[in-house]
Design a protein around this nucleic acid. Structure first.
Length: 425
RNA sequence: GUGGGUAUAGUUCAGUGGCAGAACGCCAGACUGUGGCUCUGGAUGUCGUGGGUUCGACCCCCACUACCCACCCCA
């Protein structure tokens, strides 16, 4: 048997109803913040991710699906392609490629779609997973660097989660500083670690070399007291970054979006600067982040574009749906009417009736003339149809159809032009 | 990439070195144009794959694969 490949899965009804609910709510909420949709390709040039996400990150160095495409001629070298592991880089690529800074004002984008990372699957983590994200990008003159943009984006997320009925989320907020701040802080951190790292877990010993920032993220209980003694990035921010971070918090407080500052929050993508954040949810097990994001003031330049600061986030849709299904059980959407053709030749009038009703927006499901009535009614009620419409010789001859309410058991005989209105009320 | 667990019917799971099981679901009949309830019957299947031990393996051993959970990383 051919099966879905490792880390991928089929989404079936009724779960797809929850996905549709999420996506339509997202479109509604994002619309009032005046974001518009962007769709970028699933396949991109490998270099796009090497230069934005960072060559040294796990995402690029270990987790990417990439391959060399065939050249046009057999002798020609092919281009290295990759399935996108995230969507911010693609959006920024499109922004630069189409010179979207020429459009008036600050650009507000949102996207939803599959992303691909070749990781070991586990709860809330798949090789093909779905992200819903938004990005705000523009030249400095459009106000793209303003802390108000950060706060607005976070407020939009809070509104979305509330509207979806997700309770118990927490917003963790930090500032990772400018690129220059990060370099200075990394030096300091490395120095500080030199004295204590031998007493820490093996992972931290490795991180101290490869990516010292991640030591702050360590969850091993024995390491916690040591981590408390390490320098905080908050103390190494330049004045502008400090002011920015302060203003973001001030606005969030004023619009009553609860958050807490987590000085140890760091993120695994190179392009993040200043504001970094995560929304987490307790019910998810180890993969508890449902949203992650931050500011990326230098990303455009690193992709060869003009200065175009921005900020964005990505929601893990798979994880979000998981939290939702613990609260609300999604129900499959049944038909309004199940048409039961009864006896030879009845498929023909049944098809005509079905077409007529569907034109009036009635959800119709049709049986087959070979079914015995008992079987038709049974199928109708098992699949949740609200009404059964019997189409037999008697009905066709008289023009009066038997319409049975499957909830109450009540049955009426009505003419064909009364069916739609009866069923809808 | 590392560690642990699991693999038997459509689903959830029992099971024993000697005929492959239950519940639910599915199909049919009882009831020829009236569902839900009930009763009766049926099909469920390469017991994950490949080797080995054995008179005999779904069971014991080895390898592989897949899934789940965790690490790592991230959404």
């Amino acid at each position: 048997m051919i099966k879905a490949v490792r880390g991928t899965r089929d989404l079936l009804s009724p779960e797809t109803e929850t996905w549709n609910f999420v996506e339509s709510t997202v479109r509604e909420v994002f619309r009032v913040y005046n974001f518009s949709e962007i769709r970028t390709p699933v396949i991109e040039d490998l270099q796009l991710f090497q230069r934005s996400v960072g060559e040294e990150t796990d995402m690029v160095s270990k987790e990417m699906f990439s391959w060399e495409d065939r050249g046009r001629a057999a002798s020609e070298k092919g281009q290295w392609l990759a399935l996108r592991p995230e969507n911010t880089a693609g959006v920024m690529r499109a922004y630069i490629e189409h010179k979207l800074w020429e459009r008036p004002g600050l650009q507000h984008f949102y996207y939803m779609g599959p992303q691909f990372r070749r990781e070991r699957p586990q709860k809330g983590r798949y090789r093909q997973f779905y992200q819903i994200g938004a990005e705000v990008i523009g030249p400095s003159a459009t106000g793209s660097e303003s802390p108000a943009v950060d706060a607005e984006l976070l407020e939009m997320l809070a509104t979305l989660l509330d509207r979806l009925g997700i309770h118990g989320w927490t917003l963790e907020l930090n500032s990772v500083g400018s690129a220059a701040d990060r370099i200075r802080f990394n030096e300091t951190l490395r120095t500080a670690l030199r004295g204590v790292v031998s007493k820490m877990c093996v992972d931290c010993q490795r991180r101290a070399e490869t990516n010292p920032l991640r030591v702050l993220d360590c969850k091993v209980p024995q390491d916690q007291p040591i981590i408390e003694t390490l320098p905080r990035i908050g103390d190494y921010l330049d004045e502008a970054s400090q002011a920015h971070f302060g203003e973001v918090q001030k606005i969030l407080n004023s619009v009553e979006v609860p958050f807490h500052v987590n000085h140890r929050l760091v993120r695994g993508i190179d392009y993040y600067t200043r504001t970094a954040f995560e929304f987490t949810h307790g019910s998810l097990g180890a993969q508890n982040a449902i949203v992650g994001g931050g500011r990326y003031d230098g990303l455009s330049e690193s992709l060869g574009g003009p200065k175009a600061p921005g900020i964005g986030f990505a929601i893990g849709e798979d994880r979000l749906v998981m939290t939702l299904q613990e609260n609300t059980g999604a129900a499959a959407r049944p038909a309004d009417v199940y048409i039961a053709p009864l006896g030879p030749g009845m498929n023909v009038p049944a098809a005509g009736l079905a077409r007529e009703l569907r034109r009036q927006n009635v959800v119709v499901s049709v049986g087959d003339e070979t079914f015995r009535l008992k079987k038709s009614l049974e199928t109708a009620s098992k699949t949740g149809a609200r009404y059964a419409l019997i189409v037999g010789e008697n009905e066709v001859n008289s023009g009066q159809f038997a319409l049975k309410n499957l909830g109450t058991g009540e049955q009426v005989s009505i003419s064909r032009d009364q069916i739609a209105s009866t069923v809808k009320t």
